[in-house]
Simulated assay, not measured.
Amino acid sequence: MAYSMHCALPSRSYFEALETAEKRALHSFFDQHVIEDDELGYFALDEGDYNILPVHLAARVVHTVHGGMLDEF
């Protein structure tokens, strides 16, 4: 699931997307990516929404937070 925040300052939207990704990663098996977008600035994307991250999105990943849940049981 992608979460976006519109913000006039690119650095602020980056840190908001990063915060969202970090919070979601704590409760997810999937990696959370911060994606750069020309219109939105930055947004958080849950890798679990895609079988394989599409090339057009993978090319815009600026940071990844690894999922915090383990599937070892």
Rank of each mutant, 00 (worst) to 15 (best):
D71R: 11
V65A: 04
F29E: 00
L9K: 12
F29S: 00
G67M: 10
Y50F: 15
P10T: 07
E47D: 15
G68H: 04
P10G: 08
A59I: 14
D46A: 09
L53W: 04
T20R: 10
A2R: 07
R60L: 09
G48E: 06
G68I: 00
R60P: 02
V65D: 02
E47M: 04
M5Q: 14
E36T: 04
H66Q: 15
H6G: 08
V61K: 05
L70V: 06
R24E: 04
A17D: 08
H27E: 05
H66C: 11
D37R: 05
F30A: 07
M1K: 11
E19M: 11
S28F: 00
K23L: 09
P10E: 12
L40H: 08
I35N: 03
F29K: 01
H63F: 14
D38P: 03
L45V: 05
E72L: 09
S28R: 00
F15R: 14
G67D: 06
Y50C: 05
T20S: 12
G48V: 04
T20D: 09
D46E: 13
E36K: 15
A59M: 13
P10R: 15
C7S: 12
D71N: 14
M1F: 11
I35H: 05
D37S: 13
H63Y: 15
G68P: 06
F73E: 10
R12T: 11
L40R: 10
V34I: 15
F15S: 11
Y3N: 04
K23N: 08
M5W: 13
F43C: 04
L45S: 05
F30W: 15
F43K: 01
L26I: 05
L57R: 11
E19H: 12
M69I: 01
Y3I: 07
A17S: 14
L26H: 08
F43G: 02
A21H: 02
P10Q: 09
H56E: 15
G41N: 11
A58H: 08
F73Q: 08
D71S: 12
S11L: 13
Y50V: 04
F30E: 06
A25E: 04
L53I: 14
A8T: 06
F15C: 10
L57E: 07
H6F: 11
H6Y: 14
K23T: 08
N51Q: 11
V65C: 04
D37Q: 05
E39D: 12
S11W: 14
M69V: 02
H6R: 14
L18Y: 13
H66Y: 12
L40F: 09
V55A: 14
E36M: 10
F30T: 01
D71F: 07
H66T: 14
L70Q: 12
V62K: 14
P10Y: 11
V62D: 11
P54C: 11
V65S: 03
L18W: 09
A17E: 06
T64G: 02
H56G: 06
S28T: 01
A17W: 03
Y14R: 08
E16W: 13
V34L: 12
K23Q: 09
A21F: 02
L53D: 03
E16M: 15
L45I: 05
E72A: 08
L57G: 05
E47Y: 06
A17M: 09
R60F: 04
